[in-house]
């Protein structure tokens, strides 16, 4: 029986974020909060492993109270339990402080039901770093395996797992002891349209909600803004490029001008076949 924990985050949907061109700030209201798309794959992988090997899937997130919605999404995907840690003292956390807080939550979950495997998404679309996962692994002192695009097998008696880690030009097959932490690529699986019974379960589900005081042995100094070494000092809009020369005339004439630009670089073309 495996106990798998997936780490998830609720994020603003950056795809539809709108910028206020005058003040250069984000109009957060226009960006609805969603489950980080990469994390959906993390949860789905956990659910698939549970189906293969038996066990239980818990999800954990640090975030504001509305993050309950993201947990419910995970229940729709098929998770069994959800834990939200929420507290003002977590606010302003960078990746280091986030990994600390999430680790404390996992330690607490582990006390009741030891955790065999942790799965994170490749990255969040707002933080966009991919650093929290390895950070959690280091804090728990378990091996981090990033860029995982396939879980080959888990051997529960040997307590090992074999995965594929994506490389720039292929993949490597890696074995690790359990427990360990995986950060999964989107390609690891496809998240299917959730079946109706899961929707019902999610609609009724009430996650466990913990504050800092519910966690054990927390060093307050390592939380939130205080525990974050990095600070954002300046935010600006990327400068607009200048623009180039417009080629005028009818299509024929436009192409002729373009051609002379290209043929200026003819050395690029001559070595190529198929011309």
């Amino acid at each position: 029986m495996l106990h798998i924990v997936a780490c998830i985050k609720q994020v603003p949907d950056t795809k539809i974020i709108k910028m206020n061109p005058k003040t250069n700030t984000m109009d957060r209201r226009t960006a609805p909060a969603i489950l980080n798309p990469y994390d959906a794959h993390a949860v789905e992988e956990a659910v698939r492993l549970r189906e293969r090997y038996g066990g239980k899937v818990s999800v954990v997130t640090m975030g504001p109270p509305p993050a309950v919605k993201a947990i419910k999404k995970c229940i729709e995907i098929g998770a069994d339990e959800g834990y939200l840690i929420t507290d003002r003292r977590f606010a302003g956390a960078d990746t280091l402080a986030t990994s600390y807080a999430v680790t404390k939550a996992i330690e607490k979950i582990s006390k009741e039901n030891p955790v065999d495997l942790i799965i994170c998404g490749k990255m969040t679309i707002d933080g966009d770093t991919g650093q929290v996962g390895p950070g959690i692994a280091r804090r728990l002192d378990i091996p981090p395996l990033t860029s995982v695009n396939k879980v080959v097998e888990i051997n529960q008696t040997e307590r090992t797992i074999v995965v594929h880690r994506k490389l720039e030009d292929g993949y490597e097959v890696v074995q690790s002891t359990l427990p360990c932490l995986l950060s999964v690529e989107k390609t690891v699986n496809e998240v299917p349209y959730a079946p109706f019974p899961n929707m019902l379960k999610a609609a009724r589900y009430k996650p466990h909600v913990w504050s800092v005081d519910d966690l054990d042995d927390v060093d307050i100094k390592q939380l939130g803004l205080k525990g974050s070494p990095t600070i954002v000092s300046k935010v600006w809009a990327p400068p607009k490029p200048q623009g180039g020369e417009m080629l005028e005339g009818n299509p024929q004439q436009q192409v002729e001008q373009l051609l002379s630009v290209l043929l200026d670089k003819k050395e690029l073309f001559q070595s190529k076949e198929g011309v």
Binding site: Q131, P134, G135, P144, T146
Partner: peptide, 20 residues
């Protein structure tokens, strides 16, 4: 993938800030 993997782990242990 290697650089990010290594940097995240090292930054946690040192500990220090890491900009991605």
């Amino acid at each position: 993938s290697t650089g990010k993997d290594l940097a995240s782990a090292v930054a946690t242990d040192l500990p220090t800030g890491l900009t991605a």
